[in-house]
Design a protein around this nucleic acid. Structure first.
Length: 221
DNA sequence: GTCCCGAGTA
DNA sequence: TACTCTGGAC
């Protein structure tokens, strides 16, 4: 962080440091194995993490053996992940990922590709969109990408930073102004999610917000 | 009834 | 742009 350029907007790194001071290291992604990261990322789509945790527990026996999960009938898989909601579509999405994963013998180490190429390959899998692809890139392959999710969008907008309308533009903007470091980007996303869940929710709790003193929103109602 | 770490379809 | 997929916490 020493040779940081001068034409960067330092509000991003400042926000990161403030959040880090408040919440501390987050130890993300909450999963025992890289494969579990992928399953969690699919299951949590538009769903609360609490509901995903039960599905993860029921899937545990399969999570260290992706091949066994691939052998399960999709209907059985769907029942196991019922608590995560959208369980039929999500079962299809997990199956689609497993079909892709099979060509690498279910081993992430065999996926040797640069970040951009891998992103495009992941995006071709049905059910892996921008956010899920970036979660996999960052938390499985340690590719330095910013996860431009809804929490980040909401927090930045309220904070006073202009946010481009599309996912990709938003991602690239943050990646320009923030260090391209997988460890810091890992922590940044985790901190934004924690902050988003706790205070900067759809209906924000600004009165109790620990960073209200540096946030623009306190002036705008 | 509202909200939750989205993505596909038309 | 709107609709669909879905359970569970609150």
């Amino acid at each position: 962080m020493k040779n940081w350029k001068k034409n960067k907007d330092n509000r991003y790194i400042n926000l990161f440091e403030k959040l880090y001071d408040v919440y501390g290291p987050q130890k993300w992604w909450p999963a025992d194995t890289p494969f579990e990261v992928v399953i969690g990322a699919i299951l949590v789509q538009n769903t609360s993490w609490k509901n995903v945790e039960r599905s993860i527990k029921r899937l545990k026996p399969y999570l260290s053996h992706p091949k066994k999960l691939a052998q399960l009938p999709e209907e059985t898989l769907a029942q196991l992940i019922r608590s995560s909601g959208f369980y039929r579509v999500k079962a299809k999405r997990i199956s689609a990922f497993l079909r892709w994963f099979q060509q690498y013998d279910y081993e992430f180490d065999r996926v040797k590709k640069d970040g951009e190429k891998l992103r495009n390959e992941l995006l071709e899998i049905n059910g892996i969109g921008n956010e899920t692809a970036d979660v996999i890139l960052l938390y499985v392959f340690h590719v330095p990408v910013f996860i431009a999710d809804r929490y980040a969008r909401t927090i930045f907008q309220r904070f006073g930073i202009h946010v481009p309308p599309t996912y990709e533009e938003f991602r690239k903007q943050v990646e320009f102004h923030f260090p391209k470091d997988a460890i810091l980007l890992n922590e940044f996303h985790a901190l934004l999610v924690t902050h988003g869940k706790t205070y900067c929710k759809k209906k924000p709790i600004c009165e109790k917000c620990p960073i209200q003193n540096i946030c623009q929103r306190r002036f705008t109602s």
